[in-house]
Each structure stands twice: as structure tokens, then as C-alpha cells.
Amino acid sequence: MTLTANLTKNKLVEMYKMMVKIRLFEEKVFELYAQNLVPGTIHLYTGQEAVAVGVCSALRKDDYITSTHRGHGHCIAKGAEIKRVMAEILGKKTGYCKGKGGSMHIADFNIGMLGATAVVGAGIPIAAGAALSIKLRKTGQVVACFFGDGASNQGTFHEGINMAAIWQLPVIFVCENNLYAMGTRQSIAMKIENIADRATAYGIPGVVVDGNDVLAVYEAALSAVERARRDEGPTLIECKTYRHRGHSRVDPAKYRPKEEVEAWLAKDPIKQLRERLLQSTILTEVEIQRIEEEVSTEIEEAVKYSMESPYPAPQEALEDVYA
């Protein structure tokens, strides 16, 4: 991993801090889940932090993102308040969706986070639609659409990317290839190794990046975002990455070979950036320690806030069906 010249020290530290924030947040969610405090299921982003942070660092505040069932990292990276993310995960009234969405459907329209859909691949045409809206309204925004390797086998991938391509829409399609669609290995579900190759079929650029290298993700995303803003159309970026835990709460992920897991854990995106920042003396051990403490404190506050927040009144179930 090399440090890119066009990133300021502040930006690098911010990116590092954001990755740590997502990691510690997800570990806290897992801990709360183990204590039976999280209703339903959870899909943790642990291990994939470089993707959300690399992409969102290349976006403007008013740009949009769309997200998936594994979406906590996306909204935190886009700037969501973690206390309201946590409150939503716990089903509280103070959560982003007033307890109506939960872990899989967090949205914050105020920061351009257009929400997480839990139907695999469904966000792809929605992201294209937001990009069409941008183009018609001429606002110069860009959409980043996150989805996984599994989603790339959905019809929405084909329909949505094709439409974005023919209309040259300002959207970047970010495929987080963590090698498994639930428990199904990529090689069982497709004949190709690089999902980015599919871009050729739509006449758009397809790029493969190391999804555990936040700076590589950032550079690829920035270049795609700039291209989109120049009105040159969409890009498909495939980020090769790995989830540290199973698909969802009940999954011990026994279908993954031990050596594979170990090899990927050795490529932990946070560890990689940390080593790099230390080597180039951008951060010291003491500063790293301080960042972790700051983030931990923020997360503890978010937990406290969420735990103390009330549940919605039962009859609120009847609200928000229609505008």
C-alpha cells in the first residue's frame, strides 16, 4: 500500500478514524447481539471497511449513496450519527427510521444516504434513478451504489447498469466482492473471476481494486466520481474484500477454509492502513491509541443513548404508510 500524494494528512487520519469507527461499532453490535439485546438479525461489515470509507471519502456531502442489508458501514462512512444508527438497530424510536426499518433498512436522507434495501440487487436501478434525477435536475451530484457479488447475478444488475450506461448517468457501481453470497462461493455462482469484466457488456469501464486497500479504493472511486461528474457516465468498480464474520448472526461460516480466512485476516484493511500511517510517521502509536479511545467513547455514548431511548409506541406501527 502506498500513500497517495493528493491526500492530506488530515484526510488520511479521518479515513483511518472512520474505519476504526465502523470496526468498533460493528464489534459492539456483535457484543450487544450476544447479550440478546439486538432483535432480529445482523449482517456485520467487519473486514470490508476500506470499501465504504474509500468510496465515501471520494464523495461530496450532497452526493447520494444506496446501500444493502450489510449497510452499517456505508451509512457511518457517509456521515450518519452512530447513536441514531445504533438506536435503529435496537428498534428504538430515536433510530433513523423510528424503529420501522432496523439493521437492514437504515436511511438518512439529510446526508444523501438513500437507504438500504434488503432485496439483493434492488438498489441498483434505484441508484440509477437517483442519478437520472440528478441529470434532469442538473445538480452535479453523483450516486455511489453499493452491492455485493451475489447481487451481480440479479436481473437488476443487468437492467440497472445498462440503463445507467445508455443514459450516461452520474453513478458509480461499487461491487463489494467478499467471495460469498451468503454461503455460496463465487465460483459456484458465476463462471468468471472478475465481476468488473461484466462492465464490457454495458460499454462502461470496469475496474478491479484491492478492496482491503482503502487508498486504492479511494483512488478508483475518485476517478469514477470525477468521470461521472464530467457527465461521462457510470463505472463499475469491483472491490475484492472479505467479511471477517459469517453472513448473518447465526452463521459460523464453516463453508470457508481456515487458510482462506487466515490469509484474509492478515490483509485486514485497518491493520494495513495503520502500519502504513506509522511507517510514514503520519500517526504515532500514541495517536493511534487516542483515536481508538475517542471512537470507543463515542460508541459507548451511542450505546447509552440507544439503551436509554424509548421503544416506539405500538400504534406507531400504523404511521408512515402513506405521505
Binding site: T66, F109, G129, L132, S133, E159, N162, M163
Partner: peptide
Amino acid sequence: DDRVRDTPISENAIIGVAVGAAITGM
């Protein structure tokens, strides 16, 4: 043609694109 937009034969994306446009002000 921008406001009366011919689409490919992709019904799910026609509606998906419309949803994305609708939630962002169109």
C-alpha cells in the same frame, strides 16, 4: 426525449429507476 424517455425492455429497472428519481425530487 429527456422528459418522454424511451427505455429498454427492462420493466423492473423502469420502475426501479422511477423509484430512485421519485425519492430524489422528481
